[in-house]
Structures are given as structure tokens and as C-alpha cells.
Write a protein that binds this DNA or RNA. Structure first.
Length: 651
DNA sequence: ATACGATTTTTTTTT
DNA sequence: AAAATCGTAT
């Protein structure tokens, strides 16, 4: 039996015990939002709602896993069948059942952004779009434009007019590419991330029986991080909720940081208009941070015009003021960070309670080097993710071929690994294979070999060797196939072309182990595309490991540490100059706010005064505008929300 | 024409 | 660090 009286405060308990209907919860940073959601799910299950009739949409799959395992702890038994995970995950689950109605085969494959970029590139090449003048957008930019258009449901024309006006002359070719891209995906039986959402909505929209089924199915729908949903996602939610109208959305407009993905905090702002009978709850008690940290964060976010009015109250005892640290340059910043980490660690704080946060992955380089030099263990949570590494994707290409013999991208990638087989030859070989009834068998024919010029014979032979071994295994368990790929040529390939071959081999072994928990290639591949890291699955293992976390602010969402050190708080870096142009200053300020509110006990804001690494010699940097504007507060109150340190004497 | 290596540039953030 | 570009060898 769960003790709601003991475990929750009044604000939280009201949300948990509220019967149903549309509910909006505005949950400030550190206010126990996850706790509240967890208890509500537990409560619903305890009341006898069948788990498979609950939908819990979260921002990452890990968040869902964590919450559900806590729910299981609370009610003391396993629960199976809850629809928990990201929108993309749930879309996938739905579409596997209904994709046929939309013209896709049920075994459609999910492509990531790299594949998508490549596919767009192929479209452009085949359409003979002349990139004259050199100002034509690259494939990934076009991909972004298309993606934004899908997620916001705004026409390509308007997107380009408003956010990419310098491409306005290319509207026509871009539109043509977009429609070709769409056709291509359909004929190749592929969906990109956006398609998952798009077609989920589509299947609900076009087929009333499907919509009725799911609207009837979901007795309760809970959406976490609602401020980071986009128009498409909101529409899906609204359609699913028409049946029972038990829809609870939880979010904090001040923490909306994904506009580049089409996220729109207006989903939160407009919720009360859409559901006039909704009840609004606010969680405004912050349990996480000291009053000093919260004070600084509040001061900062108050500069934003557009937001729900709320006041976060600190309940913790007074602590130390945040520290503003200026360093001579980047190296000194790294040095300071490492030094301070050691001191803090020596004072009794475990390394796992310390995080270094930054706006962009490349900001972390110097700190990485310094921590390595000093032997301080750390984990990076930004940049290329495990499954996006080229060697993982190489191996995956073979798996994809086995699942879908028409997977153009996979064939080309696998073939292109070998010597003397470049884009042109790979294209020719693919054309040949695509025309065959049995592509697998044709790989070993004389005609296949003759498709390429003689210089490629050697490379082709090696491909055949690997492929022969792989196809002998067939599509059984993924780990066996991966092992076969490695043992029959790929490891050799790695050693020939990479100096860090052994590190990559280790990755692949980890990859293989990870795959062994899947019983079919199909399952494995479709999971893979939607998974961020290997750790996604294992929820609690990280807790007992002892290392500092280096993370982008985006990745730090929802997490907390005793000590947070923000680096690169320099104008142009935080806010990132590029991003201000695209997404606006307010979103960058929200990022600053998110970063600051991750800290429980101590917050350090570091900024280097000089940046030497750019081409034009030494550039002097000024502190972030978000820091300067905090100082204006001092003029009225006579007290700065931070204290100043200098890492060393400047003169 | 094609592949590939050297050089240059350019680094957002993510499902 | 990775991608895009350029020049050279085949």
C-alpha cells in the first residue's frame, strides 16, 4: 500500500489523486515532477487500470524505463504492457500493426538522420539539380528544413520564407527534392524519425476505426516534458484522448529547449484554451537547489517575456553563492575545472555527483584532455552516440541487408567499405542487385562481378567472403551474425584503415553483447534506430559508478548533481551565436536556466577571456550576456547573485 | 571517370 | 573530430 500522505507534499498529492479529465501540471525545475508522475501511474495501476490501457509518453526511453521500474517498486510487483516511451517509440509500436494501410510493408525500416541525408543526396544527384553558384543548401540543411516543416505542420514555403529566407530562390527545387525524398522512402519501405510521427497521425486521421480503437483503448494518457512536444505530437495526443479525455500533460515552459526540432512551448500555453474544463496545478516547491542557486536561476529566467507566471520557492537551507570564474584562456579553464573537481572530491563529494555542462560538444575538448591527463574518470554524454559510430553502422548495414534485400543505403554502405569501390561503383552494383529476383544469390554470380571494373575485383572478393559467412548464418540471433561479420573480414578491414582499431573492436564486442538480448534481427534493428545509448536499457547501473559526467545541456535535462560546473559561459558560445540567429535569445536563456537548475549544492560559471584556437589569432571574449544581465540586479540590491573568482592573476 | 589521400573548414542541440 | 573540398594517380 502506498503512503501518499507521507511521500508527497500537498501540491504533488493533489495531482496524483486527481481522478481524471484534462489536467495541466506546470512543474518547475526540481519540484518533484518525476516523482509525481511516478506516483500517479502507480496509483492508476493500483486502482485497477489495466497497464496496457495506459500511455506514458516521455522524452527519452530511459525516462520511461526509470519511471516504470520505480512504479514497480512502489506497488511491489511487475507490470507489463504499459505504453511507455518516446512518441517515436509508441509510433513505431502502432505503425508495425497498421503500416500496410499506408502503403508500407509491415517490416519497414527506420532510418536515422545520416541515412536520411544520404537519401536526400541521392535524390538531388538523380534529379540533376545543379548546385550552381555554390549557394544551394546541402543535403542536411534541406533535411532540416523538411523535418521542421513536418514537425510544425507549416508548409515548406512558409518555413523557408520565415527561417531560411536566403534560400527563397530555391523554393521550387527544394520542394521537388522533398517530394522525391518522400517517394523514395515509400518505395524503399523506409521511415525517418519524422515519418513515424507523421504516419502515426496519418493512420489515426485517415482510418476512423483505428482512431476509435486507440481512443477507446487509452483510459489514461500522461505526457511528460510537454513543453518540448511539437505540433504534430500534440495533435496525436489530442486525437488519442478524445475517447476518455483523461489527459494529463506535465511540463515547464521555462525549460523548453528543443525548438530546433519543432518543439513549441505554446502547446502548454494553449492547453487551457483547448480544454476549457481542464484543471491546472502548479508544482512550485524546489527541493533540489540551495536558495542561492535558485535565486540566480530565477533572476535569469525572469528576463524572458513569454512564460507562465510561477514562482519557484526554495525550501533548502542556505548554502554557498554560485561562483563566477574567469580564466585567461581555454586551457586555464580546463585546468581550473580539473583542479576544482579534485578539491571537491577530496572534500568528500563523490565524482558521480559532479557534472561539467556546456552548450556544444566541441566545448568539452580541452576539459576532456585535462581530465584524461590527470587520470580523473569521466563519461561524455554529447557528440556522436554509441550507435552512430561508423564502425557500428558498418556492421549494422550487413544486418539491414539480411532483413531487407531492397535496402539501398545498406547495400551501398557495405559495398563501399571495400577497396576500389567508391560511390560510383557501389551505385552500379546496387542497380544490378536491385534488378535481381534474388539479390542474395546474385552476389556470388559472374554477372555481379562483371558489373564493376577489374580494379574492384579484389574488394568485391572480400565482400563476397564476408557476405557468404553472414548469409550462411541466416537471420537468427543478431549476436551470431555480428560475430560472423567481424570474424570474416570486418576486423581486418578495421585494422587496415584505423589506428584505433582495437577500441572499435571493443565497441563491436559490446554491441554484440547488447544484441544478444534480442531474438530476431528485425526487433533488434528497429529498436536500434530509436535508442540513444547502450545505457538506455540498463537503468540503475550508473548509480554506483564513480565518474564525472561531461554533458551537453540538452542531455542534462531532468538530471541533477551536487556540483555543476558550466564552462564556456562566453558571449557567442552561451548563447551560441548561430543559435540566437535561428531559435532566438529566449531559448538560449532557457538553456542557461536548465543548466543552472541542475545544481543541488554548488554552481560554477566559467568563462575564458581569450580564445586562441580560431583562425584569426587571439580573439578576446566577453562574458555571456546572461551573466552581464545578472549584474544589473546588483545595482538595485547592492548584492551580486554570485561571487567572483579569478583562476589566476591576470597581470 | 573514379577512387583516394591531403588539405581545409567547420563545428548546436536530438528522436 | 568529422566532413567537405581539392588535387592527383589510376
Amino acid at each position: 500500500m502506498i503512503d501518499y500522505q507521507r511521500d508527497l507534499n500537498n501540491e504533488q498529492r493533489k495531482v496524483v489523486l486527481e481522478e481524471g479529465g484534462p489536467i495541466l501540471v506546470i512543474a518547475g525545475a526540481g519540484s518533484g515532477k518525476t516523482r509525481t508522475l511516478t506516483y500517479r501511474v502507480a496509483r492508476l495501476v493500483e486502482k485497477g487500470i489495466p497497464p496496457e490501457r495506459l500511455l506514458l509518453a516521455t522524452f527519452t526511453n530511459k525516462a520511461a524505463h526509470t519511471m516504470l521500474s520505480r512504479v514497480e517498486n512502489l506497488i511491489g510487483r511487475q507490470i507489463n504492457g504499459i505504453w511507455g516511451g518516446t512518441f517515436h517509440h509508441c509510433a513505431h509500436k502502432t505503425l508495425r500493426m497498421h503500416a500496410r494501410r499506408l502503403g508500407f510493408a509491415p517490416n519497414f525500416s527506420i532510418i536515422d538522420s545520416e541515412d536520411s541525408r544520404q537519401l536526400i543526396n541521392t535524390c538531388m544527384k538523380e534529379m540533376k539539380i545543379d548546385v550552381k553558384g555554390g549557394k544551394f543548401p546541402k543535403a542536411d540543411v534541406i533535411g532540416n528544413i523538411i523535418s521542421l516543416s513536418v514537425n510544425t505542420e507549416i508548409s515548406l514555403e512558409d518555413i523557408i520564407e520565415n527561417r531560411y529566407d536566403y534560400f527563397i530562390n530555391y523554393l521550387e527545387p527544394i520542394t521537388a527534392i522533398a517530394s522525391e525524398y518522400k517517394k523514395r522512402k515509400l518505395s524503399l519501405n523506409m521511415m525517418d524519425f519524422d515519418d513515424l510521427l507523421f504516419f502515426w497521425r496519418e493512420v489515426l486521421l485517415r482510418f476512423p476505426d483505428v482512431r476509435d480503437h486507440y481512443a477507446e483503448l487509452f483510459l489514461h494518457i500522461l505526457v511528460d516534458e510537454y513543453q518540448d512536444t511539437n505540433r504534430l505530437q500534440a495533435e496525436i495526443v489530442n486525437m488519442l484522448a478524445i475517447g476518455h479525455r483523461n489527459l494529463m500533460v506535465v511540463g515547464d515552459d521555462s525549460q523548453s529547449i528543443y525548438s530546433f526540432r519543432g518543439a513549441n512551448y505554446e502547446n502548454i500555453m494553449n492547453f487551457p484554451e483547448l480544454y476549457p474544463d481542464c484543471r491546472i496545478f502548479k508544482l512550485e516547491t524546489n527541493y533540489r537547489s540551495t536558495p542561492e542557486i535558485l535565486h540566480l536561476a530565477n533572476l535569469s529566467i525572469n528576463k524572458n517575456e513569454n512564460q507562465f507566471q510561477k514562482t519557484l520557492r526554495a525550501v533548502r537551507d542556505r548554502g554557498v553563492r554560485p561562483v563566477l570564474v574567469s580564466t585567461r584562456d581555454v586551457l586555464e579553464q580546463a585546468d581550473f575545472v580539473a583542479q576544482r573537481i579534485l578539491e571537491i572530491n577530496r572534500s568528500g563529494v563523490p565524482l558521480g555527483e559532479i557534472a561539467v555542462l556546456y552548450r556544444a560538444h566541441f566545448h568539452s575538448m580541452e576539459v576532456q584532455m585535462e581530465l584524461t591527463r590527470r587520470g580523473i574518470p569521466f563519461e561524455i554524454r554529447s557528440g556522436i552516440r554509441f550507435f552512430e559510430q561508423s564502425h557500428i553502422k558498418d556492421v549494422t548495414a550487413f544486418l539491414r541487408i539480411l532483413v531487407n534485400p531492397k535496402d539501398e543505403l545498406a547495400w551501398k554502405r557495405a559495398l563501399g567499405l571495400y577497396e576500389k569501390i567508391g560511390p560510383a561503383t557501389a551505385e552500379k552494383l546496387w542497380r544490378f542487385l536491385a534488378a535481381q529476383d534474388d539479390p542474395y544469390a546474385s552476389v556470388f554470380t559472374e554477372d555481379f562481378r562483371k558489373t564493376a571494373s577489374r580494379s574492384a575485383t579484389n574488394g568485391l572478393g572480400r565482400f563476397q567472403e564476408t557476405f557468404r559467412a553472414v548469409s550462411r548464418i541466416g537471420s537468427t540471433s543478431p549476436n551470431l551474425v555480428i560475430e560472423a561479420i567481424m570474424q570474416n573480414g570486418y576486423v581486418d578491414l578495421l585494422r587496415e584503415s584505423h589506428t584505433d582499431a582495437s577500441a572499435r573492436e571493443e565497441d563491436l564486442i559490446q554491441f554484440m553483447n547488447f544484441s544478444s538480448s534480442f531474438s530476431s534481427l528485425e526487433d533488434f534493428l528497429s529498436e536500434l534506430a530509436l535508442l540513444a545509448s547502450v545505457n538506455d536499457e540498463t537503468v540503475e547501473t550508473d548509480e554506483n559508478r564513480e565518474h564525472v559526467v561531461l554533458s551537453s545541456i540538452h542531455q542534462a535535462k531532468g538530471l541533477e548533481w551536487q556540483i555543476v560546473m558550466m564552462i564556456w559561459c562566453s558571449e557567442g558560445m552561451m548563447p551560441l551565436a548561430r543559435a540566437v540567429k535561428e531559435g532566438g535569445e529566449e531559448e538560449e536563456r532557457r538553456l542557461f536556466y536548465v543548466a543552472a537548475t541542475r545544481a543541488k549544492d554548488q554552481l560554477y560559471l566559467c568563462y575564458p577571456l581569450r580564445d586562441y584556437a580560431r583562425g584569426m589569432g587571439n580573439l578576446s571574449l566577453s562574458p555571456s550576456r546572461f551573466i552581464l544581465e545578472l549584474a544589473s540586479y546588483a545595482r538595485s540590491s547592492g548584492e551580486l547573485p554570485y561571487e567572483r573568482w579569478q583562476a589566476c592573476d591576470l597581470y
